[in-house]
Design a protein around this nucleic acid. Structure first.
Lengths: 155, 155
DNA sequence: CTGCCTGCAAACTCTTTGCACGAAT
DNA sequence: ATTCGTGCAAAGAGTTTGCAGGCAG
């Protein structure tokens, strides 16, 4: 249950699926868990290469699905062209994302009622809910006073 | 307030923005409002060309933002690579999407509490909410009995 | 050994953009 | 007359894939 078991969990998943435990996959795994915020495939590639410089972009893209399927990572799509990832550490799947439209930072907040909502509404339609996501776009704190976010990254 | 006024609304928006009312834009508008379900840019292009075969893909992509800005269409991004659009007829912005993972169909359902939630949570973070979206992935009705959705479109 | 994995580069999908001509105001 | 709009084709961004050689089990 400690954080190290996450690595074992990943290895177990690979083995159980008849997949090989390679240095590249482990480097990508370690790079992913070292991230402090949401990260992109490209950022993961950069970081993984500092651990094992033989890691290629293709392998990163091929490994990401393995890590999401094994519940190591959670995928976050905010509709911006590229996907973001985050260690699924807390096991909390009932979370919403608040995205600052100025600095593009992503905040995660718990939204415990989401599960209830998904069940309620989906059952009304006769559907069987699998997952759900709630995202809020917003302006940053500083926006109100300065008119724009101090952390803006683009434009 | 009848449905015809929507066309006038679009023309008014164009004029007011100093933009020209062209046959292509009107064809795209008509094609969009003729859609019964969520549609993609490509589907819109096909349909618009049945009205005016001079319509190009580029113009469709250039016109879509005009129609969303003028509240004619609502954009729906379910994280599938391509964006979907829907006439923003009912003026109801507090809606969630339920996406069937088997047939990819998108159902829209009202979710009146979304606004409250966005405000509550965003204000706790000191942010100023702009918009929000709630999406539920689910299996179709028929999935439970047959094991898969009869409307599956892909694979 | 056998089959899965890898890096590379090319391919793909959806969308955006530069350009020179054409049309709306 | 201007200014904006258009189609075309090329460019972009992010991601996926075919291939021939390489490594884990």
């Amino acid at each position: 249950m400690s954080s190290e078991s996450s690595r074992e969990k990943f290895q177990a998943y690979l083995t159980q699926q008849g997949l090989h435990v390679t240095n590249q996959r482990l480097a990508i795994f370690d790079a992913a868990l070292a991230q402090k915020e949401h990260f992109t495939a490209e950022q993961l590639l950069d970081r993984a290469r500092t651990i094992d410089d033989s890691v290629s972009r293709a392998t990163v893209y091929r490994t990401l699905p393995l890590m999401t399927e094994s519940q190591i990572l959670r995928e976050v799509d905010i509709g911006s062209g590229e996907k973001f990832y985050l260690p699924a550490s807390s096991g909390n799947t009932q979370v919403a994302q608040v995205v600052c439209v100025d600095c593009d930072r992503i905040f995660e907040i718990s939204a415990p009622f989401m599960e209830w909502y998904g069940s309620t509404v989906s059952l009304k339609l006769g559907l069987k809910p699998i997952s759900q996501r709630l995202q809020v776009s917003a302006h940053c704190i500083a926006y109100r006073s300065s008119g724009r976010c101090p952390n803006r990254l683009k434009k």
